[in-house]
Design a protein around this nucleic acid. Structure first.
Lengths: 144, 144
DNA sequence: ATTTAATATAGCTTTTGAGTATATAATGCA
DNA sequence: TGCATTATATACTCAAAAGCTATATTAAAT
């Protein structure tokens, strides 16, 4: 039961972006993020393309270009970031996407409601943490 | 972010076992469980082998043999079942197993503590639910 | 015009999930 | 005793997905 690297990278990259962009107004290039977080540049490009489509970041092309957060770090939730690059679904039977066909055992499955409730709680947990929270905690820890 | 089929099957199979074994003293064969839950028999054998090694079930060989729960359903937690067949680790960097080498970025990683805390909370969540809870809820739902 | 960096696809490689296959060992029952 | 039944134990296959690479193209700043 683990998060894919896409989800992990997206979160780490956005923390980096937020932490390293002066007042969230100076765009940060992917080259810098890739180097700073040890992530493949091309792979990161794909991830940021998705993040942009989800409205989480905005981009500036050309020299001195890069990416900017579309929201304040205190309003950007870990869960929203992850959900934009991969579904947060503990089991496929609880999927809401219409592409996936419904599980036939649903009506007789003793576990279905439990999976549903667990998945919901995990989403709530991930959406109770913002990028700002993570940064604040790190700064506090560094001081000690 | 999803549970592997091993984890899902293990939980479903044990709910079935608990629900269908009279007073938890009559062993239930894998053939029956496989048919009842639409799971491949051979695959289920592997899973139950693991569950036995983890001390979650005990077995009886020969005709009329099968598996029995090693604990009362009210003392058997979803999290323990899942953890016996796959690690509950949101990221590999928080792995406790010595086989996996430690992540080199750990000391400079802003996200590490957050992953750790999230993983812990998910484990707690899964260990707040017992097999008995799931069965009780199902019975209650059926009455309405 | 040239450089920098994002946009957009296409394709490759490795791992793991999921399931099969097969052989052996123990037990109950006729 | 011997046969059927069920668990134990490995080893192997196959497909899909994860993870990453490669290669253009497009846009903007200087």
């Amino acid at each position: 039961m683990k998060l894919s690297s896409k989800g992990q990278y997206a979160v780490r990259a956005l923390i980096y972006l937020s932490y390293n962009s002066k007042e969230n107004s100076v765009p940060v290039g992917l080259k810098e993020i890739a180097a700073g977080e040890s992530i493949s540049l091309h792979y990161l490009e794909q991830i940021f393309f998705t993040l942009k489509k989800a409205g989480i970041v905005k981009s500036l092309r050309g020299p001195k270009g890069g990416y900017l957060l579309n929201k304040k770090p205190s309003e950007l939730f870990i869960g929203d970031i992850i959900e934009s690059v991969e579904p947060i679904e503990i089991t496929s039977c609880i999927s809401k996407s219409k592409a996936k066909k419904e599980c036939g055992r649903k009506s007789v499955c003793l576990a279905f409601d439990m999976w549903n409730s667990v998945s919901k709680k995990i989403t709530e947990l991930l959406n109770s943490i913002t990028i700002q929270d993570v940064i604040d905690e790190y700064k506090q820890k560094k001081q000690i």
